[in-house]
Design a protein around this nucleic acid. Structure first.
Lengths: 244, 244
DNA sequence: TTAAAGCGTGCGTAATGCGTACAAAATCTG
DNA sequence: CAGATTTTGTACGCATTACGCACGCTTTAA
């Protein structure tokens, strides 16, 4: 069913990066002929998923129905929400769960907020996995070959001066996470932001998500995080795994 | 290009309501033959947008790439963000923008949060338009016939005891909003939540979004909101309209 | 000013997706 | 509990759909 595949790729192409694209731009980006791109774009416009001025094409709000469905329908956020809220209340910090999608983590739920929340942590937001505690904790349960493939496919870039960018070091770090059972990102995403994360497994033991607590760097040091936040996360993790 | 159309409908069907659906269930819900539903579902599974155990089908995280693209790529949230932040800072309340999508409003951006935020206001979240200030302010710029059609198509239900549910009254209220140029929702969405909203127009004068300030009912009365918050919103509105 | 490269579009053809018809479950009923 | 009946999932031949080539036009470079 090629039409569906290409159409979805077109939507992804329009959603990634440049907001408005020309017909040929879309064709080039996903490697199809211009004629095909044209047919798909015109169809998407007709269906209301895209808009056009005849020259450029861009996404219409209707595509929100496609993605948001997952977040609404997914069972994990619902059953994890009370656990997140409790952790948030007990630690007075922000607790979140996220999943791995391509090279990014995607936030699915947060604890009810107390105090100011870091800017880029809202539901549906994507952050490169390689530099986040949640990302590493999910990667740690892959075998080394897969991890290397993942790192190879990732666009590794410095988000802060502290971001680890050597693929060698990252593999080493993820191996360490695998042994520890948790991961910490110390200002690697944003200066002033520290996170600690644990994996969430389904009943068959497969890692399906990660849960984290994030805080301003000034509030707690790394060793305190392990001592005070990790037990909370572990308790929450056990509870969620039981519910899944 | 029927395959694409039906495939997208299948995704929407899987995303709406029941998280897991059977093949025939999908077919029934969108009015296609079971054979067609089967082909589309199998393709979606193969492409990684859906998952299945052979009997039931559900969405895979990959669909997040489709919807989130719009929010990331849309220009409005980006250029409105500083305005929202300024309003948030000056009023010490939460400022948001949203668009109208089908029968709902969808939040696209918020001011940086100070204090506690109402639970169901995160980016991408949908709320029925008929009972929100932002929804009504966007509806007000349609003609009466369209508004009646909209109300007819909406599932009007009481979210709180204060929710206005008579289609007559709602039309009347929206007419009033049209005259006033702003709209207030007084605990119609959630007890304890008041909002005031103004429309955002593009350079051709078409209403493309709405901007609001929301607050806990205890903090400010309706007349104070008009007196103190509306001027801020108006100033922000002018600024955004200039930038569009 | 001309050449060249890039872009969007119409058209005949081959493959794709269509619905019908059948088999297998699941559900109802006496 | 067995037969009847509805409901569900699957295979196949045909018609439609989507494919890419080729053409004409626009924009960029020489």
């Amino acid at each position: 069913m090629g039409a569906l595949e290409k159409g979805l790729l077109v939507i992804e192409a329009l959603g990634a990066g440049t907001p408005k694209l020309t017909l040929s731009g879309v064709a080039r980006r996903i490697g199809i002929t211009r004629a095909a791109a044209r047919r798909h774009l015109l169809t998407l416009v007709e269906l209301g998923y895209a808009e056009s001025n005849g020259k450029l094409f861009w996404l219409a709000p209707r595509v929100l129905r496609l993605g948001s469905g997952y977040i609404i329908a997914a069972p994990l956020p619902k059953l994890a929400q009370p656990v997140l809220d409790r952790i948030g209340e007990r630690t007075r910090e922000t607790a979140s769960i996220a999943i791995l999608e391509a090279n990014d983590i995607v936030f699915l739920a947060h604890s009810l907020r107390r105090g100011i929340l870091a800017a880029n942590t809202q539901i549906g937001v994507r952050v490169p996995a390689f530099c986040t505690a949640m990302g590493r904790v999910m990667l740690a349960h892959l075998d080394d070959v897969k991890i290397e493939e993942f790192l190879e496919a990732s666009e590794i870039r410095k988000l802060t001066v502290k971001t680890m960018t050597s693929r060698q070091d990252l593999l080493q770090e993820i191996r360490k996470v695998r042994a520890d059972g948790y991961s910490i990102s110390d200002e690697e995403i944003e200066i002033g932001l520290r996170s600690i994360a644990v994996p969430i497994t389904n009943s068959r033991g497969q890692v399906v998500a990660a849960m984290s607590v994030s805080l301003q760097a000034g509030r707690m040091g790394v060793s305190d995080m392990i001592e005070r936040l990790l037990p909370e996360l572990e308790a929450g993790r056990r509870e969620i795994v039981r519910l899944i």
